[in-house]
Structures are given as structure tokens and as C-alpha cells.
């Protein structure tokens, strides 16, 4: 009898979860449902075990290790000593040099985000207001460069901006000055906007595409002009996309490493570069760990801010 119950539970589970008329012989008792739900939940857990295990081992555990290392000390030869725990690395985060690098990176990430937003909004709006067929083509044309090789796309700008690259040649052909953009913060800005623009376009597109156009029409019916209707209806309704896109651009811009390494100058160190140098050249792992952790912390704050803002606007 017990085994029969178990079998029935098994069968019940493979069908819908709540269907009391499934079998008239045995009434589906709350216990039976509960047993079925329990087995179902166990099955779900079992399926997720490989991913769970892998992510805990190769993601969560490393994350904890970074935190541990950030409190470790360092021998005179640069070896990390897991003893003499201290907060020296965190204290160093407030040194003038680090503050300067952080401020520069923040500003750069902020300007990148704003530029992406200004360029993307009308662009996403245009795509979202096309017919579905055209929309799909336009969207795929955004996504192909988005997911293709980031390193090479950045490298292309190095070729273009180089001292006798295209920009310079064009400028000189028109009798202008030789333009020196490469190895300055401006080149990094161009590279970042170029690399992360789709991060802004796609959520904006999704938000605009989803919005209820009858509301815009209603505004127009109430004698709002095009601009007012946009400002009072379209823009507020697409705010979740604005916030999501901004965070998705801001976070990688803040931790950018490849773009400054290829396009940036040696004098204007940025956070990503600085973190890498702590591990690969300066060999100060505790300090590098503290820096990475600080960046992740900011990232976490940004994400929480997004959830808050999103919750209000939705």
C-alpha cells in the first residue's frame, strides 16, 4: 500500500501538480500532494547539482578566497602570507594614488554611460518602432558585433586612431593638424562606448518595445504635443530600460582592462589596469584582492540600486 502510494505520487508528479480529479479511486490527500511536491523538489535539486557544485567550487569559493586574501599580509619577496591578518590593504584604498585612479575610472565610466545613453535612446526607439520583420533584422545587426570578438574590435580602433591612422590622414588631407588621440583617455572613451553601446541599446529596445502605445495616443488625444507626450509618457515608461542599460554599461566600464591596455596611455592608469598590475607585476595580491573586492562591492551597490529603482518605476 505504501509503495502504491509512492507510485501514485510519482505519476501525479509527472502530470500537473494540482489535479484532484486525476484518479477517482484514491482521493488525493494533502499528504499525497505534499509527498509529490517533495519528490518534485528533490528531482529539481538533483538536476541542478552539477551546476550548483561547479558554481560553488569555481565561483563562490574563489569569491570568498579573494575576501580572505584581502586581509592577508605579504612577505618582502612578494609572497602572500596567510597569517598576520590585517586591514592594511583596505587602508591603502584611501591613499591619494588609489583615490585619484578611482575618481578617474568613475568619471570615465560615468561619461561612457551617458554617451551610450544619449546615442542609444533614439537608436533603440527607432528600432522598436519598426515593423517586426525589419526590427528583427536591425536587432541582429546590433547583436552580431555585440557578441563577436571584443579584443579585435578594440584593436580596430588602434589601427584607426594611430598616429598615421585614418583619422589623422583624413584630418591632414583637409589641411588640419595631425590628431593625436591614441594613448589618451579620449581613445579609451571611444573604445568603451564602441564596445559597450549594445549593452545600452538592447535593454532600451526591450523597454520601448514593450510599452503600451495606447498611452502615448491617449496623451496626444489630450492635446499633448509630441515632445510632451514623449517626456511625460514614453520616457518614464522606458525608465527600467534606461536604468538597466546604464548599470550594464557602467559596471564593465569601471572594471575595463582590455580597452585601456590597447588604447590608453601609460600615465592615466585606470582601476582595471591597476588591479591587474597588482597581480602580474607588483605582486601584491592582498592589495589587489582588496581592490577587486571594492569594485565588486560598488557593482553590488549599483545592482541593488537598480532593483530599488526598478521596483519603483515598474
Amino acid at each position: 500500500m505504501a509503495s502504491e502510494g509512492g507510485e501514485r505520487g510519482e505519476r501525479l508528479m509527472t502530470t500537473t501538480r494540482r489535479r484532484p480529479d486525476l484518479d477517482e479511486e484514491t482521493p488525493v490527500t494533502p499528504e499525497l500532494e505534499k509527498a509529490a511536491e517533495k519528490a518534485e523538489s528533490r528531482r529539481g535539486f538533483l538536476i541542478s547539482v552539477p551546476a550548483y557544485g561547479y558554481l560553488v567550487l569555481f565561483f563562490a569559493l574563489p569569491l570568498v578566497l579573494v575576501l580572505v586574501y584581502s586581509f592577508a599580509s605579504r612577505s618582502s619577496t612578494g609572497r602572500t602570507l596567510l597569517e598576520d591578518w590585517n586591514v592594511e590593504s583596505y587602508r591603502r584604498l584611501f591613499s591619494d594614488l588609489v583615490l585619484e585612479i578611482s575618481a578617474r575610472s568613475f568619471l570615465l565610466a560615468l561619461v561612457t554611460t551617458l554617451l551610450c545613453l544619449v546615442v542609444s535612446y533614439p537608436f533603440a526607439y527607432y528600432i522598436a518602432t519598426r515593423t517586426p520583420r525589419i526590427r528583427n533584422v536591425l536587432l541582429v545587426l546590433v547583436m552580431i558585433p555585440f557578441w563577436s570578438n571584443f579584443l579585435v574590435r578594440t584593436y580596430a580602433w588602434r589601427v584607426i586612431l594611430g598616429s598615421d591612422g585614418f583619422v589623422s590622414q583624413i584630418s591632414q588631407a583637409f589641411g588640419g593638424e595631425e590628431i593625436r588621440v591614441l594613448f589618451t583617455i579620449w581613445a579609451v572613451l571611444i573604445g568603451l562606448v564602441y564596445g559597450y553601446l549594445p549593452f545600452m541599446v538592447l535593454p532600451l529596445y526591450a523597454a520601448i518595445e514593450r510599452l503600451d502605445w495606447s498611452l502615448v495616443e491617449a496623451a496626444r488625444d489630450l492635446y499633448a504635443n509630441g515632445f510632451t507626450a514623449f517626456r511625460k509618457v514614453t520616457l518614464p515608461l522606458s525608465m527600467p530600460g534606461v536604468v538597466a542599460g546604464s548599470i550594464l554599461v557602467f559596471i564593465p566600464s569601471l572594471g575595463a582592462y582590455v580597452t585601456p591596455a590597447i588604447l590608453g596611455g601609460a600615465r592615466e592608469t585606470l582601476l582595471g589596469d591597476y588591479i591587474v598590475s597588482q597581480f602580474l607585476t607588483a605582486r601584491n595580491w592582498p592589495f589587489g584582492s582588496a581592490l577587486s573586492f571594492a569594485v565588486m562591492f560598488v557593482m553590488l551597490l549599483a545592482t541593488i540600486f537598480y532593483f530599488r529603482a526598478g521596483a519603483k518605476t515598474l
Binding site: F59, L63, V66, I251, V276, S289, S292, M296, M299
Partner: peptide, 9 residues
């Protein structure tokens, strides 16, 4: 998460 932080981890 940014690439660099995952790399460090």
C-alpha cells in the same frame, strides 16, 4: 561581474 575581478578570483 567584470572580467578582471573574475580573473583575480
Amino acid at each position: 561581474i567584470p572580467d578582471v575581478t573574475m580573473a583575480v578570483m
